[in-house]
Simulated assay, not measured.
Amino acid sequence: MIAIGITGNNGFIGSHLVNMLRLQPDRYKIINFDKHFFENKELLDNFVKQCDAIVHLAALNRHSDPEIIYSKNLELVNVLVDSLKRTNSKAHVIFSSSSQEEKDNLYGKSKKQGREILANWAHQNGGKFTGLIIPNVFGPFGKPNYNSFIATFCYQLTHGETPIIDNDGEIKLIYVSELAKKIINQIEQEKGQEVYYVSHTSLKKVSEILIKLQNYKDIYFEKGEIPEIKDTFELNLFNTFRSYFNLKEYYPVKLNECKDSRGAFIEIIRLGIGGQCSFSTTVAGITRGNHFHTRKIERFTVIKGKALIQLRKIDTDEVLNFYLDGNEPAYVDMPIWYTHNIKNIGEEDLYTIFWINETFNPEDSDTYFLEV
């Protein structure tokens, strides 16, 4: 088992890396870290001593004063190096630098110099070091106006604001889960690399991305239709977009019901994508689910009976409760990284239609069981 410590573990990349590592609890042990460790030598040294690998992600990305970004980022690196020296650590230190190194700004300068300081520590102390040069990262739960322009666009489109393009250039991008897998791969390597260029997985113009996001807003956010997903990038972009909904306000979504003397007709889902549709009955008091997905798009539609659908983002304690009644058919879509369940809270059988965007593959089910 590899003991891994992550500074910046609550940040955008850090939280995704933690969640990916937790998918393999028999292989990786996560050492607890808190940002106040940087202010306490004893706590920081205790953290460093436990680690086989340290992924240093903690950094200041934006501030009104670039000088503060520069000084803070170097301060964090130097404090970590001091602890590595005090503890005579042989941990594999992995540092997240940025393609901004190539640009003339203080953030990029702080990243380059921080990488060089850690590489120098490794040379002088027999340490193991990998310096990652990372392209632009996007994915679910990033902070708007902070982590990426995609996070900003997604937030604006789902909160009644209008995105504006400042510079319509081509951007090298990597999805945050793809980056987490690359970091884990580096942890597993026997030797470090002073400079490791993380390859981008897509190259897109800003305007091209905005057009796709506006389409998601028009047909999914406003109409409930699952858009056509042509490739992995579009799936990742769509799942990113979905993460910016205010779930409490958006769900459950009521369906249009047409009744006549024959009975009722209800349209469940419109698709620009294939997938698998299933129907279930659930007896009173029974709960289904208690699992989460990292990539799948899933819709639960209640057409008869009374149901409680619960969602919880796996690294939070907040449980979202949605009450659905077949007398007013409605659906809730399951965001990725949210564990979810559905319980029959009525006295009659519950009828539910489940749709998911890919057919079930037992060898790659993307289903991880976790109580809500």
Rank of each mutant, 00 (worst) to 15 (best):
I2A: 14
A3D: 13
N9A: 04
N9M: 06
N9T: 02
N9E: 06
I13M: 05
L17F: 04
N19Q: 07
N19M: 11
Q24P: 01
D26I: 00
K35D: 09
K35N: 14
N40P: 10
V48N: 10
D52G: 15
A53R: 13
V55F: 07
H56A: 04
L60T: 03
H63W: 00
E67L: 11
Y70T: 06
K72Y: 10
L80M: 12
V81E: 14
D82V: 05
L84V: 09
A91G: 12
S97D: 01
K109Y: 02
K112M: 00
K112G: 02
N120P: 01
W121Y: 13
F129L: 08
T130A: 05
G131A: 06
P135N: 00
N136V: 04
F141N: 08
F141W: 09
T152C: 01
C154S: 00
Q156N: 05
L157E: 05
H159V: 03
I164A: 03
I164E: 13
G169C: 01
E170C: 01
I171D: 00
E178R: 05
L179W: 02
I183L: 00
I184S: 02
G192Y: 02
V195C: 04
Y196G: 10
S199V: 04
H200T: 00
S202I: 00
V206D: 02
V206I: 08
L210M: 08
L210A: 10
I211L: 11
N215K: 14
I219L: 08
I219T: 12
Y220C: 05
E225Q: 14
E225M: 14
E234W: 05
F241Q: 05
R242S: 03
F245Y: 08
F245H: 06
E249H: 11
E249N: 09
Y251Q: 04
K259A: 11
D260K: 13
I266G: 06
R270S: 04
G272I: 08
G275T: 12
C277S: 14
C277T: 15
R288N: 10
G289Y: 13
T294D: 08
R295A: 11
R295F: 00
K296P: 15
T301R: 11
V302M: 05
G305H: 10
R312T: 08
K313E: 08
I314N: 03
N321W: 03
F322H: 01
F322P: 05
N327K: 14
E328D: 11
D333L: 02
D333H: 03
D333Y: 10
Y338V: 00
T339A: 03
N341S: 15
K343H: 07
I345M: 15
E347I: 15
L350V: 12
I353P: 10
F354A: 08
N357D: 15
N361H: 13
P362E: 13
D366N: 11
D366K: 11
